[in-house]
Write a protein that binds this DNA or RNA. Structure first.
Lengths: 223, 223
DNA sequence: GCGTACATACCGACCGGTCGGTTTAATTTA
DNA sequence: TAAATTAAACCGACCGGTCGGTATGTACGC
């Protein structure tokens, strides 16, 4: 979603790169904001939130501290702003999966591996994922941003399990419990990847793990 | 393992509480060290590693900074020293479970809920758990302390699954994969608890979740 | 008296955030 | 259209405070 680093050209000047036309205020603003976000996510990812100073971000973004605080009230606001597109991305992926014309178990597999996909993309996002969890567990305002998408995520699992039970492709299991298991498994797999490189290397492992689980609660032949 | 707080008597004087006998140097040393560790784990748990200053710890322990740095070279060394008994606790619990005279699936349930038990005890340990994971993912020295016990933990799952398959109480599943699933599930459940208070409130949820999973891969009647 | 165990005062670095001032775009006026 | 005015975007020095860590001095077991 965001570029890796913004150390490149410090040419966020008043003219855009094509040539002579002065940038509008809005363009200028957007550009700066983006540079800050780009730099911030790179730093937060690889150094952690606390270890990243605002000055660091500003330097990497080629932007002054004044500009930074012109766009964001606090450092944490940047973090939240970073979270939002991420959660949106997950949300979009979820609705896409839900809409597929596949059996419930198959869609459940895809759903459960989404966390892994969205998170592990590019390998660098895992620390950011941890960071996010920590902040959410600690800071109420971050938690609040998080909790709604999370509930939706869980809910879509419940819905799919219900569907599966109804259409008979799943044994009559407790939907809430099963949803919890699937979400936990997805999240847990990400953490395993963070701790154990061998685990992270095997990308399809998550899919196989979840398939194993689903196979257990499926009724009859391979779904 | 450690007391909640050490704010109580600042009587780590040169005489022990019973009366008149002067404390040995070793006794004095041990006592101070313990107070520091007690205070540190309380702070790390409820405030987080970064948010806890060495001065905080010293104050809570009723100890000077000089004493602190006499016993530990760095702040992180305290963190690692805190990790060790925790991991030892987990290790001990694991061997205890392994030695039980129960069916493999039952022991697997206990094993998988161990993370939850050891971690969630008193509710406050979850942030500490997250903290530990972050540090491990970031800092090689912390990771190193972590990795061995972790491997043992995983290995005991594999062993149990193998046992279960051999004795016929489990379907012939892939042991490595199944172990990964169980560990991930355990870890994931802890994270769920950190994010969702409702989830954390229901203490038995973890057990039920894992039972559900195991039921899926069990062969025949309730194990 | 000699070394270990601690206490205190202190250091330099750095932190998130502020503020007065400058540059640039947008708008009004003539 | 060009000058004058306003408003938004941005700059960077600076603030009070905190941080992890150190240097020096003292008290007590041995």
């Amino acid at each position: 979603m965001y570029a890796a680093d913004a150390d490149a050209g410090v040419d966020a000047d008043t003219r855009d790169r094509s040539g002579e036309r002065p940038m509008t205020n809005e363009e200028r603003s957007d550009a700066t904001r983006t540079r800050i976000l780009d730099a911030a996510i790179a730093r937060f990812t690889f150094e952690g939130y606390d270890a990243t100073s605002v000055a660091d971000v500003c330097h990497a973004a080629g932007v002054s501290k004044g500009a930074f605080y012109h766009h964001f009230d606090t450092k944490q606001e940047v973090f939240v702003a970073l979270l939002e597109p991420w959660l949106a991305e997950l949300d979009a992926a979820v609705t896409e999966v839900l809409a597929r014309e596949e059996s419930a178990p198959r869609r459940l597999i895809h759903l459960a591996t989404l966390v892994n996909r969205v998170t592990a993309e590019g390998r660098g996002r895992i620390p950011m994922f941890l960071e996010f969890w920590r902040q959410a567990a600690k800071d109420p305002s971050v938690w609040h941003v998080t909790v709604e998408p999370y509930r939706r995520f869980r809910a879509s699992f419940v819905r799919l399990v219900n569907e599966g039970v109804d259409e008979g492709s799943l044994r009559p299991v407790d939907p809430d419990l099963t949803a919890l298991v699937l979400v936990s498994l997805g999240v847990g797999l990400v953490l395993q990847g963070a701790l154990d490189p061998e685990c992270a290397a095997r990308g399809d492992l998550g899919e196989r793990a979840i398939a194993l689980l689903l196979d257990g609660i499926s009724s009859g032949g391979t779904p």
